[in-house]
Amino acid sequence: MTTTKAWHVNGFLALLIALASFAGGIALLIVGGNRPEPNGWLIVAGIALLLLFIVLLTSLTIVQPNQAKIITFFGRYKGTVTDSGLWLVVPFTGKTKVSLKVRNFNSQTLKVNDAEGNPIEIGCVVVFKVTDSAKAVFDVDNYSKFVEVQSETAIRHIAAHYAYDTFSDDEVKPSLRGNADEVSMELTRELQTRLSIAGVEVLETRLTHLAYAPEIASAMLQRQQAIAIIAARQKIVEGAVTMVESALKQLMDNGIELDEERRAAMINNLMVTIVSDRAATPVINTGTVYG
Score class of each variant (00 low, 15 high):
202 V>Y: 05
179 N>V: 00
140 V>Y: 08
133 S>K: 09
190 E>H: 06
139 D>A: 15
200 V>A: 06
157 H>D: 15
152 E>R: 06
157 H>V: 07
144 S>E: 15
203 L>T: 12
145 K>Y: 10
117 G>H: 01
172 V>F: 05
179 N>D: 14
174 P>A: 01
164 Y>E: 04
136 A>F: 12
145 K>P: 00
145 K>D: 13
207 L>K: 02
135 K>Q: 15
185 M>S: 15
121 E>L: 13
114 D>S: 04
149 V>L: 15
183 V>C: 07
155 I>K: 01
117 G>E: 00
151 S>K: 04
144 S>M: 14
131 T>S: 07
185 M>K: 15
130 V>R: 01
181 D>E: 12
187 L>S: 11
147 V>Q: 00
217 A>P: 03
142 N>C: 02
203 L>I: 12
137 V>H: 06
160 A>P: 06
129 K>T: 08
118 N>Y: 13
141 D>L: 15
152 E>G: 11
114 D>W: 01
204 E>L: 07
204 E>M: 10
129 K>A: 04
159 A>S: 00
149 V>I: 15
132 D>M: 08
206 R>H: 08
144 S>D: 15
181 D>V: 14
129 K>Y: 06
138 F>V: 10
154 A>W: 07
186 E>Q: 13
150 Q>G: 03
152 E>F: 03
181 D>W: 02
135 K>M: 13
144 S>H: 15
213 A>G: 11
200 V>F: 03
121 E>Q: 12
216 I>R: 04
137 V>A: 02
197 I>L: 10
113 N>M: 13
143 Y>R: 01
133 S>V: 14
156 R>K: 14
154 A>V: 10
131 T>N: 12
168 S>I: 01
117 G>W: 00
128 F>D: 01
135 K>D: 02
151 S>Q: 06
152 E>N: 14
117 G>V: 02
198 A>M: 06
208 T>D: 02
173 K>S: 14
148 E>R: 12
148 E>G: 04
186 E>D: 14
173 K>I: 13
203 L>A: 12
178 G>S: 10
214 P>H: 04
165 D>C: 01
186 E>T: 13
182 E>W: 09
217 A>W: 06
210 L>S: 05
213 A>V: 08
201 E>R: 10
215 E>R: 03
115 A>F: 08
150 Q>F: 09
184 S>H: 03
200 V>N: 05
142 N>S: 11
202 V>Q: 05
201 E>H: 09
175 S>M: 03
161 H>N: 15
214 P>F: 05
168 S>C: 01
122 I>F: 02
147 V>E: 00
191 L>N: 08
209 H>E: 12
133 S>Y: 07
164 Y>C: 05
151 S>A: 13
117 G>Q: 02
163 A>M: 06
116 E>R: 11
189 R>K: 14
218 S>A: 15
205 T>E: 02
181 D>R: 11
